[in-house]
Design a protein around this nucleic acid. Structure first.
Lengths: 232, 232
DNA sequence: AAATAGGATTAGGCAATCCTAAAGTCTTCC
DNA sequence: GGAAGACTTTAGGATTGCCTAATCCTATTT
């Protein structure tokens, strides 16, 4: 049995496509051209073109008009990039005290430039963290992750007590607002009320100063992943 | 009086050209196409093409067949990149204990991706260092540097005592060898002998374990910059 | 003053990425 | 069962950077 061949250097854009496809595939179905385009903020036509090249390189399999799936090689590459990204986020946050909401953008740029060696040094300095500042799990060196399927805050019924496990990390403004509300990974919430017609969700935030009642719109609540902690 | 316009984002290659031209200009004359090509390990024809684009962007002035000079804008951009590079080198070395000889290559990649904010955070964490691990001066935030003109070890006469101030940083193998000899910025040397016909230079290395005599070829000695400390 | 050696520039290409516009395909809804 | 609408792909372009081969300057040498 032979070690896998040297991971060839991929370009920044290629790594971005693979990450996007990985993420989109997580919900089960193959990634559609359109979804990839939206996620990367480029035109669908460009995605079609790039997907062909990724397929040529053996990183994805593509059934025209049907969608894209990562091959094993593609998945390995995606997880390597994800590991880099998340360790960088941890390092920036914990060691350099980088602001919570801007960490994602910085890591997004550095992940394509930082060597394996650098990232592993950072990981060691942090004691090999297992999740990033937004609660996302960090793939291991050998490419394993445990992507738990949490419910979102929008799906929780009134009366439940939950712990925040993860929040979306892309939009600085939303992150800043969530932080203001006291909602971040690890926060404890009790759902007090859920207004009908996709109305706001009222929660008791244990971790706000002295505890506080907060109303969260469904849009935002759908980006907050929680884990049950019991009924009130 | 108005603040200078936002420094537009430059591509990695463009930053590399500007750094190369900056360095070549340090010795006085405008940078030649050929020298830039050698420094960046690309063909002279490519340099001609890129120089035109740099001139279009107002970053350099180009007199065909005569050479290239940085404009004020170009110099500012070059110094920004150089500051990034050298602070990154310091940070990697001091905080992450990155090996001395590989720091240059890593910083070379990161300098194009790291934001101003990140680099300034690193600088603060280090107490605003004034020189990088190889002895190169770090430009200030507002773009000032003091590039001292040191003699090289190859130019020093026997009998002199010198302190190493700076060493070339590009080649890991040479750096490793110099470190083995005990020659790095701050080391104290006494020149014992200089063989004729560009022969080796024999030095007493104060900082080697217990002090040691070492012979250095002129090629290597020319990459070690020193400052006089007196006659023996 | 003409020949020549080097260095510089132009000509013509290629690969990676992205774009807009036009054409193709699939699914679903009368 | 056919047409609408949504999504995908192809066609044709642009840009950035790099390359090789060929041509062009400049300065030195005879």
């Amino acid at each position: 049995m032979k070690a896998s061949p040297e991971p060839q250097a991929l370009t920044g854009p290629v790594e971005d496509y693979l990450k996007a496809i990985y993420d989109l595939e997580l919900v089960g179905s193959p990634a559609s051209t359109n979804d990839i385009a939206i996620r990367l903020a480029i035109s669908p036509a460009s995605v079609s073109g790039m997907v062909r090249r990724l397929a040529d390189q053996g990183l994805v399999s593509h059934e025209p008009y049907r969608g894209v799936r990562l091959t094993d090689d593609g998945r390995r590459a995606a997880l390597r990039t994800l590991r880099r990204h998340r360790i960088l986020e941890c390092y920036l946050t914990e060691v350099l005290d980088y602001p919570w909401d801007r960490v994602h953008a910085e890591a997004e740029r550095l992940e394509h430039a930082a060597s394996e060696e650098l990232v592993e040094r950072m990981a060691s300095a942090l004691g090999d963290p297992v999740q990033d500042p937004h609660g996302a799990p960090i793939p291991t060196r050998d490419g394993r992750v445990e992507e738990s399927a949490f419910r979102t805050l929008a799906e929780v019924a009134p009366g439940e007590q939950v712990r925040v496990r993860r929040v979306h990390d892309k939009e600085p403004a939303r992150l800043r607002y969530l932080a203001e509300l006291g909602i971040r990974p690890g926060s404890h919430l009790r759902i007090l009320d859920k207004a009908p017609f996709d109305g706001p969700i009222t929660v008791w935030v244990e971790d706000a100063v002295g505890g506080a009642t907060r109303a969260v719109g469904v849009g935002l609540a759908a980006q907050v992943y929680v884990e049950s902690e019991g009924q009130a």
